[in-house]
Write a protein that binds this DNA or RNA. Structure first.
Length: 562
RNA sequence: AGCCUGGUGGUGUAAUGGUAGCACAGAUGUUUUUGGUACAUCUAGUCGGGGUUCGAAUCCCUGCCGGGCUGCCA
């Protein structure tokens, strides 16, 4: 408890943790805290889910409680085991453990069915023969009350009989529903005799063909929480209007009553996060699939090179509140860099190669030079990089007519090649079009390792790769998927797609050490950014790199301004 | 239009009647064999109008603006 008070001083609790804290202090639920993450297995998890996962597992952990993973599988026409498996994989990858508490709403179908009968018997539920269309008409509108239908006064016996026939598959889909009798004139539309069971002749991934009727979300969710002994049912704002119904079921069924608390969902700029819109991107081929590295799905982020730690940290930093928000992707990138700066091994690679020949360096000589793996982490040790007469440097690192603050290579200029030597550009070789195709340089043998014994300074340090030892690679550079901060602004969000969200570079040059890189491993290409092997397309013969995020670049920023 | 809900720097989030703070972004500088990192400094905010109070982001009234709700989706 003192630990809690300490952390409370350091970081103030968000409104949900404050509520939980108060209730624990007050001894509610015997001081127990139990949450759950309840996705519907009808799609892939995204950053918004990550926030919810971190919140639910985080709150449980901080208060010494538990968090269940519950698949909310009440609608067999939309759900697939494929999705359920992907969900579990993603939650696990994010670093959370539900131990033996993998639950399914479908585990409770029998109990739910009994409760439905209980409601019928107490005159609180009835079978309704209205079609969806008719029901909509009778429900009223936002401003007008609904009207009671004639089926509302059916006898308990008739309701029981009809409901049994619904269950037995005697009726067609949509022909009847079981509704709960609340208040057709409630200003809250959810209370106007909501449907709690509908007829669906579809096999269920878990229960097979056992059921021809399935409970609605409202009838399943709160009760599932109740059965699992959940104390705090955290959900997003759009369920606020459902809370009275949630409470109604717990009260009228006389069962354990968790507290539903709603928070604002996460929005990220320059991307869309709704299932429907992401599906459209996939189906229309605007992205390569759900795991496209530009997608905000967990799978997309993972393939892009985002680490679980960075996403967890991001989820914490975005905070929890009830107001609508639009988070800047810069925060996500910050979290990534913050994590990888400490952990990623440094390597050298050249994206847009420019050949350099060191004229005074012996032909056929190859030196092994020591290079530090991570200046932020002495434990990471060092490696060796080959140096030879012919090298590649970045095209951007040379300018024939450099402006004032350009610290890199130019005719007659001296720069340092990282961990190697000082070199001076002596000649610029061009092709027929006046394009620079090669640089002739000289090196100073005294500066081996990158230091000059005479104390001579250079302004710039360049990354490079030895040409005869270079690995070829394809590198994919990603930018924001949409060019508009809020793509959903206009009529059709796809009109805001950023045509340059993916830039593929081939014939990139990498230092040989990268042949040992493994899928899932992140590394920094010095001065360029954080990268990883593409988990789907990279092979030892055909290296494919994804740029997770560029390094901060104050030179690029300066250039942009001018 | 009815109900629910929210409005604090550019963005996000604290402060719950007592000095408006933190993070990201932005700007400047120091250090640097990554124009990275680190460090330092700076910029910038309580939706408007009334009221209560010695004192209001916080309480009251009122206006304005945003979001959600009319699935047998969740």
């Amino acid at each position: 408890m003192s630990e809690l008070q300490d952390s409370q001083k350091e970081a103030p609790l968000d409104f949900i943790r404050s509520i939980v804290h108060e209730e624990v202090e007050a001894g509610k639920n015997d001081g127990r805290v139990h949450t759950r993450f309840p996705p519907e297995p009808n799609g892939y998890l995204h950053l918004g889910h990550a926030k919810s996962i971190c919140l639910n597992f985080g709150v449980a952990d901080e208060f010494g409680g538990l968090c269940n993973l519950r698949l909310d599988d009440t609608n067999p026409v939309a759900e697939k085991t494929e999705y359920a498996e992907a969900i579990m994989e993603d939650v696990r990858w994010l670093g959370f453990d539900w131990e033996d508490r993998l639950c399914h709403a479908s585990d409770y179908f029998d109990q739910l069915h009994e409760w439905a009968i209980q409601l019928i018997k107490s005159g609180k539920a009835y079978v309704c023969d209205l079609s969806a269309e008719e029901m909509r008409k009778k429900r009223g509108t936002l401003t007008e009350p609904g009207v009671k239908c004639c089926f509302r006064e059916r006898s308990v016996e008739e309701n029981l009989e009809l409901f049994a026939k619904m269950r037995d598959g005697d009726f067609e889909d949509g022909s009847r529903t079981l509704r709960v009798k609340i208040d057709m004139s409630s200003p809250n539309l959810n209370m106007r005799d909501p449907v709690i069971y509908r007829i669906v002749h579809a096999d269920h991934p878990k229960t097979g063909d056992k059921w021809k009727i399935y409970p609605s979300y409202d009838f399943a969710h709160g009760q599932s929480d109740s059965i699992e002994g959940i104390t705090h049912s955290l959900c997003t704002l759009e369920f606020e209007d459902h809370r009275p119904l949630y409470n109604w079921f717990c009260e009228n069924l006389g069962i354990h009553h968790p507290r539903q608390i709603e928070f604002a969902r996460l929005n990220l700029n320059y991307v869309v996060m709704s299932k429907r819109k992401m599906l459209r991107l996939v189906e229309d081929g605007h992205v390569s699939g759900w795991s496209d590295p530009r997608m905000p799905t967990i799978q997309g982020l993972r393939r892009r090179g985002y680490t679980p730690e960075s996403i967890r940290n991001f989820s914490e930093k975005v905070g929890v509140a009830k107001r609508d928000n639009m988070i800047d992707v810069a925060l996500l990138e910050h979290c990534l860099r913050n994590d990888l700066n400490k952990k990623a091994l440094r390597r050298m690679g050249v994206l847009r190669p420019l050949k350099v020949v060191i004229e005074n360096y012996p032909k056929d000589q190859v030196e092994k030079l020591d290079a530090i793996n991570n200046p932020e982490d002495p434990e990471a040790g060092s490696r060796t990089v080959p140096f030879s007469r012919e090298l590649y440097i970045e095209r951007d690192d040379f300018m024939e007519d450099p402006p004032k603050k350009f610290f890199r290579l130019g005719p007659g200029r001296e720069v340092r090649l990282r961990y190697a030597y000082y070199i001076t550009c002596t000649e610029v070789v061009k092709d027929g079009n006046g394009e620079v195709v090669e640089l002739r340089c000289s090196y100073d043998p005294e500066t081996k390792g990158g230091d000059s014994p005479d104390g001579r300074k250079v302004k710039g340090t360049l990354h490079w790769v030895s040409a005869p030892n270079a690995l070829n690679a394809e590198v994919r550079l990603y930018d924001r998927l949409f060019s508009k901060e809020n793509p959903e602004d206009g009529e059709d969000f796809t009109s805001n797609l950023n045509p340059d969200s993916l830039l593929t570079l081939s014939n990139c040059k990498l230092e040989p050490e990268l042949a040992r890189a493994e899928s899932g491993e992140s590394f920094q290409l010095e001065r360029l950014g954080y990268f990883c092997l593409d988990s789907e397309d990279s092979s030892p013969e055909n290296l494919v790199l994804n740029r997770t995020a560029p390094l901060r670049d104050s030179w690029a920023k300066l250039q942009k301004r001018n």
